[in-house]
């Protein structure tokens, strides 16, 4: 709706929108602010918004007490590893479906989507049993594989929609120009697909980072990522608001930043390309 409106109208819009926006963002803002307070100030009545003694002590305590780095490292390895694994498996599959479609391509895509809709709780115990018998319980590799599998349909779909946008004629031109399949993928397809692959990776890291069913149920002390680390704060002994906030801020900060970069891709990824 590219149309000029009066400044007054625009100011009113701005006021309403920002009020609502800040209201929605407030819980996150409040968490971040509280993470810099002392425990006493954190539960002060009335609440203190900005004029408190800013301190980094909570961050230090959280790191010390809960070995934050280990959980962070687990999250990084699990989210990164599952994404990388997923991309390696999904790129060839998506390539085939986008550029060499057959009559069954659509069915395969739809079927992949349907596996994403399997409720996790319905297969919790079988997976649990399999993990025990394979010795994968509470290992990073086990979680990596599970998260890769639950997100694989999304990765394939996203890549497929991106690849679909690369005109077939360009690949045919490369073939006419004498490129072998390897050269075609290396010099033409990959450079053109990199933006799409990058956004797929980004979205998938976010999804894997925040996954909270399998990470809670398949890990204990060794492989627990940040989701499980935070959940451990729900036990009564961990009820220190400032420290809880510091831990929360550390857990969400990396993904908040990644997430802001991937807004647009998010829509495409989460709607399986149905909304672009």
């Amino acid at each position: 709706m590219a149309r000029s409106v009066s400044t007054r109208r625009k100011a009113l819009n701005t006021l309403i929108a920002w009020t609502i926006g800040l209201l929605i963002f407030f819980p996150i803002l409040w968490t971040i602010l509280t993470s810099f307070k002392t425990e006493a100030q954190a539960i002060n009545d009335p609440p203190i918004f900005f004029f408190f003694d800013w301190t980094l002590e909570n961050y230090a305590v959280v790191q010390e007490r809960s070995d934050y780095m280990r959980f962070l490292w687990n999250s990084v390895i699990i989210a990164g590893g599952s994404t990388l694994l997923g991309i390696l498996i999904a790129v060839p599959a998506a390539w085939s479906m986008a550029f060499v479609p057959s009559k069954r391509t659509k069915d395969i895509l739809m079927w992949m989507l349907s596996t994403k809709m399997l409720p996790a709780v319905g297969v919790l115990y079988p997976i649990y049993l399999l993990f025990i018998s394979l010795g994968l319980l509470d290992t990073r590799i086990g979680l990596m594989v599970v998260l890769m599998l639950i997100n694989l349909p999304i990765i394939v779909w996203m890549l497929y929609t991106y690849f679909k946008e690369i005109p077939t004629e360009i690949l045919e031109a490369a073939r006419m120009d004498g490129a072998t399949l390897k050269e075609e993928i290396l010099y033409i397809l990959t450079p053109m697909a990199i933006p799409g692959i990058a956004s797929t990776i980004l979205l998938n890291i976010i999804l894997a980072w925040n996954e909270a069913f399998w990470t809670l149920n398949l890990t204990a002390a060794q492989a627990a990522p940040l989701t499980a680390f935070i959940a451990s704060y729900s036990s009564p002994e961990g009820l220190f608001y400032a420290k809880l906030s510091a831990a929360s801020t550390m857990a969400i900060a990396p993904i908040l930043i990644l997430g802001w970069f991937s807004q647009k891709q998010l829509v495409r990824g989460l709607t399986f390309g149905a909304v672009k």
């Binding site: 005109p167 004629e169 360009i170 045919e172 031109a173 490369a174 120009d177 053109m192």
Partner: peptide, 14 residues
Amino acid sequence: GLAMVFQSYALYPH
């Protein structure tokens, strides 16, 4: 040994 010019030109955008 043939060369082709496509309708969409099919230039490599990158």
